[in-house]
Amino acid sequence: MRGRASVAIALSDEERGFLEAQLRRHKAARSLSDRCRIVLRCADGLTSKEIAAELGHSEHTVGKWRRRFAEHRIEGLSDEYRAGRPRTISDEQIADVIKRTLETTPKDATHWSIRSMAEEIGLSHTTIRRIWNAFGLQPHRAETFKLSTDPLFVDKVQDVVGLYMSPPNRAIVLCVDEKSQIQALDREQPVLPMAPGVAERRTHTYTRNGTTSLFAALDIATGAVIGKCYKRHRATEFLDFLKELDRRMPAGRDVHVVMDNYATHKTPRVKAWLARRPHWHVHFTPTSASWLNQVERWFAELTRKQIQRGVHRSVADLEADIAAFIDAHNENPKPYKWVKSADEILASVKRFCQKTLAGTSDSGD
Rank of each mutant, 00 (worst) to 15 (best):
L185K: 15
A272R: 13
L346I: 06
P278D: 12
E59Y: 02
D365C: 08
G210D: 07
R41W: 11
R115T: 15
F241E: 02
L23P: 05
T101N: 02
E80W: 03
K231P: 04
K340Q: 12
I74V: 09
L245F: 02
R129Q: 13
A43R: 04
R170I: 02
G63I: 04
A134C: 10
A320G: 08
T360W: 00
T287Q: 09
R67C: 09
S31P: 00
D343H: 06
R309N: 12
R2Y: 13
P86S: 02
A83T: 07
F241S: 02
W132C: 11
I307R: 09
C175W: 06
F69P: 07
K350A: 15
K179G: 06
R277C: 03
I121C: 09
K156V: 00
M1V: 15
F135M: 01
Y336C: 03
V161Q: 10
Y81H: 13
M259E: 06
G56L: 03
A272C: 04
A342E: 02
E120D: 12
P333K: 01
I128F: 01
C175A: 13
H283I: 01
V161S: 03
D254R: 09
S31Y: 13
S124K: 05
A109R: 15
L192S: 10
R234P: 00
A300K: 12
G122W: 08
F325D: 01
R4C: 04
S33Q: 15
G359I: 03
M165K: 15
W291R: 07
E92P: 02
A328P: 00
W298T: 00
A199Y: 05
H265D: 10
T360E: 04
K271C: 06
L218V: 03
Q138Y: 10
Q306D: 11
A221F: 01
G3D: 14
K337A: 14
E50K: 08
A235M: 09
E188Y: 05
W132T: 14
E54T: 14
W291Q: 08
H283Y: 07
A28T: 14
Q306I: 11
G56K: 07
A199F: 00
T211D: 07
W112K: 13
S48E: 10
T285A: 12
D219M: 01
A342V: 05
K146E: 10
G56Y: 07
E14W: 05
L11E: 08
D365S: 13
E319C: 12
E244N: 04
T267L: 06
L242S: 05
N332T: 12
G210K: 03
R297A: 06
T207N: 14
T287L: 10
G223I: 07
A320Q: 15
N293G: 02
D159N: 10
S90E: 11
M259P: 03
F238Q: 03
K228Q: 13
H279I: 01
K305S: 13
D96T: 15
V295C: 06
L174H: 04
K99R: 15
S124A: 12
G63H: 03
T222A: 00
K64V: 08
H265P: 06
D343R: 12
R41A: 15
R277I: 00
R141E: 11
E301G: 13
Y164D: 00
T105G: 01
D150K: 07
T287W: 03
P167G: 07
D159G: 02
L32E: 04
R67K: 14
A221E: 06
I128M: 12
D150S: 02
W132H: 09
M1K: 14
V157N: 06
E301H: 11
A53H: 11
W65L: 06
L77G: 01
A8C: 07
